[in-house]
Design a protein around this nucleic acid. Structure first.
Lengths: 199, 199
DNA sequence: GGTCAAAACGGACCATGGTCCGCTTCCATT
DNA sequence: AATGGAAGCGGACCATGGTCCGTTTTGACC
């Protein structure tokens, strides 16, 4: 007699066929990519491999970059889970400075590991507010715990910026640095920012 | 009787038709862009407007992104000239800290002004070693003059990173900061890095 | 001026991202 | 089960970036 409670869920769930196709597409994309790298990830190929029409791919992901971003989201969510509730020092339980350095090292690895995908995703991923926003908030929190005073909002984004893939590429591929040296440099940057007095 | 001295010039000059076409193409591109924004910059349109074949456009610039990068290079060269020999505080003659802050403000403006073009140029511009290299070297030099000790190579790139367009976009479009607040934040970052003691 | 090789040109051609719209599938309601 | 409309689907179609190769231009050398 009474309809189910709206449950305060804003977006109604996907229809079953839609969900099935979304899964099939992500699986197909992951498989193609494992096989031949991002080059092989053409929209026609993904659609064919998943056994759906091309239009469906675009309906689900909006664009090629959107598809890449969806693939990345999976890893990103795992990573965020590690920060929120994983083992220390990345997760809670370690002193703030250790967590901050673990954050940097982990983020650096993540970006280098997913490099090809991140570049293929372009701005769709780079401008993903959720991703940058989470990292920024986390760093801001840690800076606060470290007793840093000043414009934490800005300082957090400024500490995250040199961990972005283009910068890492520049330093490692053209600047002759190793991954270890980059991390050491970032550590020094963090130390200076944290130890500096506020204005 | 004797051929001209090789003049120690490594690359032979362009043939005259090539030079003429290159100019025509850049002019056409600039005009198209002034008219309708980067959207209008399709390779066919540029070729048609310049009165050359499409193949010629690709020969000269390699790709659409390459064409964008060439357009940007013009502005970049003017900017570099301003740093090398322009009036203070951006150019030589002002105290190092003033020059450094002028550098940041100027770079920030440049990136915001050329935003559309920079995004359209993608990695071709972002990974342009000459551009990043020049800025990095300049900042490294100023840090040295300021008596900063430590890994200046890294610190320079780390100070430049938060001036990159994606970061600025994030801060201004999603983070609710104004351009002035961003610059104020960068100033604070610089102060902390410069005042911090080395390891 | 004539000759020749190298460089540049042009536009037909291809691959692929992205759109569109008529058809099909789902599911809430009766 | 029947039904109606909304959500989803598919693949033909288009636009545009990028390639290729036969033809033309250039300029160095005689």
């Amino acid at each position: 007699m009474s309809k189910d409670l709206p449950l305060l869920v804003s977006a109604p769930p996907e229809r079953r066929d839609a969900a099935r196709n979304r899964r099939a597409l992500l699986d197909a994309a992951a498989e193609l990519m494992a096989g031949c790298g991002v080059e092989a990830l053409t929209m026609d190929a993904v659609a064919a491999k998943a056994g759906v029409g091309k239009g469906t791919v675009f309906r689900r992901f909006g664009s090629r970059e959107g598809l890449m971003a969806s693939l990345l989201n999976h890893r990103e969510e795992e990573w965020q889970a590690g920060v929120i509730s994983g083992p220390p020092p990345l997760g809670p339980g370690a002193p703030p400075m250790e967590r901050l350095l673990a954050f940097g090292a982990s983020r650096l690895r993540l970006h280098l590991d997913q490099g090809a995908l991140i570049e293929a995703a372009g701005r769709t991923w780079g401008e993903n507010y959720a991703v940058l926003g989470f990292a920024s908030m986390h760093v801001r929190l840690l800076l606060g715990q470290l007793g840093v005073e000043g414009n934490l909002h800005y300082l957090a984004t400024a500490l995250i910026a040199p961990l972005s893939l283009p910068v890492l590429r520049q330093q490692i591929d053209h600047g002759g640095m190793t991954e270890q040296q980059v991390f050491a440099g970032w550590t020094e940057l963090v130390r200076r920012v944290v130890e500096g007095r506020s204005a």
